[in-house]
Amino acid sequence: MDIDLITNVLYATLKTGTPLILIALGEMVAEKSGVLNLGQEGMLLVGAAVGFIVASLTGNYFLAAFCAIFAGMMMSLVFGFLSITLAANQVATGLALTIFGAGLSAFLGNNYIGIGLEGIGIWEIPLLSDIPVIGKVLFQHDPLVYLTIILFAVVYWVFRSTRLGLKIRAVGENPEAANAIGIHVHQIRYMAVLFGGAMTGLAGAYLSLVYTPMWSDGMSAGRGWIALALVVFASWKAERILLGAYLFGFASIMHLVLQGTKFEVAPNIMAMLPYVATIIVLVWLSSDAIKTKMSAPKSIGQPYRPMS
């Protein structure tokens, strides 16, 4: 393996991991507040479709990303209304969100199939991007890759050293106790779910504006589901999400690694890798089932009904 190949592989790993980080961070925050939103895939698709449509209509990528975030939040608001306010079953509601999102995005994007976009360009960080290898791997990316790292740092900081982080955890661990000390459980849960929607919407925009600048039905290809597994894999810790997402990113671009070597594998077989990897991770987690259970938010999946 020559140095160019290693550079390309690492570069692609960072790009491929980025949407997974965004989705998984958002979902982690929601889950920490006690809400399991299985609708990531649906929100992701709607974000991708809306982002692409706005970008093709206006040419304004900033506005497109903003609209994708807004679309993700609207989707998560529907989820929140059903699962928080109406206390509907979170698993079923999440599945409904995914099915609805797949349908809605296909409907919205119908006239945009086969259209190409220029995509968001690269921001080279001055000086740093001139460093050999590292400069190319780390400092010649599109703005969203950098933004994702910043968002990671914010989420990490919120849970490490802010009152807000404590409140979210309290609501997720024991909503009754949180309520007793004056925390508005539903308010915190809505905020967490909306944050998750915003992050997933942004991840959708990343897919359709940067990663593959186009729209096709179901283009998210299960990334929303993989991110859900990633949250469990990371045992609800932001720094492990970062690590896990890049590992998954690496698994998804193995075809680059094998390129030019004597192992020729059919592209459709290579495309299975992230899904197989997800199953392997889930199996591996089971060897530590007790630890997984210990690190999961206690009230996850359970609706909270205030006594009245």
């Binding site: 079953n89 099915i99 409907f107 119908n110």
Partner: peptide, 15 residues
């Protein structure tokens, strides 16, 4: 793709 949209709405309203 209106099909998928109708199916999704149906499940949401049902829940």
């Amino acid at each position: 793709s209106l099909t998928g949209l109708f199916q999704g709405m149906l499940l949401f309203f049902l829940l």
